[in-house]
Write a protein that binds this DNA or RNA. Structure first.
Lengths: 345, 345
DNA sequence: CTGAAAGCGCTTACAG
DNA sequence: CTGAAAGCGCTTACAG
């Protein structure tokens, strides 16, 4: 099939402004104006155009519009790892927020790799993205910060979700991780949970670093000694939680409680404790992080720190929206986590 | 800032073919040809163009290209619910496959709602999507099938993932759900697990219906009587599994084993059994579906049926690729699930 | 209030 | 092998 005839065939199938214009007996310009609510078109004409558009099932070509307007109606969401509940939950709510305003979501799974982040950032201007939501828990290098700045200079609104990137000039929506961990660990220590271990990624994780700081704060506030051997710096995976506990038990490290950096880690830890015949919370108290749906269905049900994905998504949308309006968004929005008390602590 | 000056400013920041052409001392046409590997350009010129493009950090504008070529480099992935591990895992692997060939992924969470599906399908031609991956476990209505056909007629490649939509003319990649359930339930019955309950969505779920058929097959093959009161048709959620077991125990329905339609349901069921003082597998044998990462870390560790998200993603990519090449893809690809034997059965 | 025209940035027949 | 030209479909100053 020749390029010519293919085009003709497609134009039959997918109506354009010209088709609508012809049917309504007006010019393409009027169609465009009538369908975009802004311009002043006589009510009668607007109705005629809308009828024609509906009859034809007309949808403005997103690419022509994007090319002309210099921006798409697409926002990219960059997540650390879509398989982690925290990210899939955030994705769901961000998608919901944006689809309500006719914006599509381009999903990128960073796999916690900075080279993927760099690649996408470099691609962004060519995609004329209408926004980037950077939902990564990993510490950002200065090279990446430079790339972020470049994207911003190209006029792309950016919001950080989960970690505070205001130091790089990026408006951010975060949880108050440090306060949450401080509160939770403080309670563990008060309940007789010392020595208390922390399991979760610390080095290289901006979010993990904050949580671990809260863990340290709580020790300081309680005047409890802190042992470096009780910080188990591991990846955010079930198996890492299990392995860390196994190793500690094998090495004879004593602890009466564990603050995990995620519910997944806590579940892995629980499996290891159970395998060793230890009972939770009797022998070891255990607290997770994030209140993933699963945690309520563990036995013992997991005490954990709440998440507020819906609220976070709403704040992300707000931060994007102010940038779309040309206003400066609030620099930093911090959401508090609460302790969800269940059976494990 | 006027439209004019804004444009000028942006064109300074984001280089176009013209900028590259000027720098390399050639025409825009040559730039386009040199960068796209296909055309015949003298090696010397190609090098010069590539150098210029690199120096400027040039990326072809995706919208101009999409408009001109009549297709984007974007594939939409439609999932039932991104919070379910099955879908997030599939998303991750599909994303990986496609990003390797320079294709971006537009994610849509259907929330198991058909109106969302219809909406996206109608939008698809205007987005000039390069493909649609329909990963929904829900039964498709004939109205939706019509909409799918319309999208296909508009030239958009479509692949179904998870359920067999070949009846609607859509090439499909599925698991052999029926055989998997038959095998698993057959083993439960053989191990003395009768009466055996099935918990999971059946009505309205194409995938669930298949699994339930396998459950029935196994009973027939074993000559075991089947009781309708032992099919608990509930949503794919942790809480639904818990509630179904609670109800059955309250109503005094007897069962010695449970085949769950997902690992999440199995976990919910396990919680309820535990709360009632029942031991798994001693009192009740339990098998999940899908081998989600979590299932290995439950105690007792969950016996379940394997998933192969990576292979499925590869097959999806293949099916899209043949359509991109103008070839007919294999109608139906069926992936076998294996029984992952752990402690719960 | 409406239409004709220009142009967004790219790619590809069409000439040479 | 390379360049000039056309055109993808849309929107928006510019005239009227």
């Amino acid at each position: 099939m020749s390029d010519q005839s293919k085009r003709k065939k497609l134009s039959r199938l997918v109506p354009t402004v010209r088709d609508v214009a012809k049917r309504a007996g007006v010019s393409p310009a009027t169609v465009s104006r009538a369908l975009g609510d802004k311009a002043v078109v006589s009510p009668e004409l607007r109705q005629r155009v809308q009828d024609a558009a509906n009859a034809l099932g007309y949808r403005p070509n997103a690419f022509a519009r994007g090319l002309r307007e210099g921006r798409s109606r697409i926002v990219a969401l960059l997540v650390g790892d879509i398989e982690q509940s925290h990210f899939s939950s955030l994705t769901k709510h961000v998608q919901k927020e944006l689809s309500a305003v006719g914006t599509d979501l381009l999903l990128h799974d960073l796999e916690h790799r900075e080279d993927r982040l760099m690649h996408i950032l470099r691609q962004a201007p060519a995609l004329q993205l209408n926004g980037i939501v950077l939902a990564s828990s990993d510490t950002i290098s200065s090279a990446a910060a430079t790339e972020i700045a470049a994207a911003r200079n190209a006029g792309i609104p950016i919001v950080a979700a989960g970690q505070d990137l205001t130091w790089a000039g990026v408006p951010s929506v975060t949880y108050n991780e440090r306060a949450a961990a401080r509160h939770s660990v403080g309670q563990l220590l008060a309940l007789g949970g010392a020595p208390c271990a922390y399991v979760g990624r610390v080095q290289g994780s901006a979010v993990g670093t904050e949580r671990h700081r809260g863990y340290c704060d709580a020790h300081e506030a309680a005047g409890a000694p802190r042992d470096a051997a009780l910080t188990w710096d591991v990846a955010y995976r079930y198996s890492a939680g299990r392995d860390a506990v196994n190793r500690a038990l094998r090495e004879g490290i004593a602890f009466r409680s564990i603050q995990a950096g995620s519910d997944e880690l806590a579940m892995g830890a629980l499996a290891a404790l159970t395998d060793h015949g230890l009972r939770v919370p009797r022998d070891v108290r255990l607290v997770g992080f994030g209140n993933v749906e699963m945690s309520a269905h563990l036995r013992p049900a997991l005490t954990t720190l709440s998440s507020h994905a819906e609220e976070m998504a709403r704040c992300i949308h707000q931060a994007l929206d102010s940038q779309w309006q040309g206003q400066a968004p609030q620099e930093l929005v911090m959401i508090e986590r609460g302790l969800v008390q269940r059976q494990s602590s």
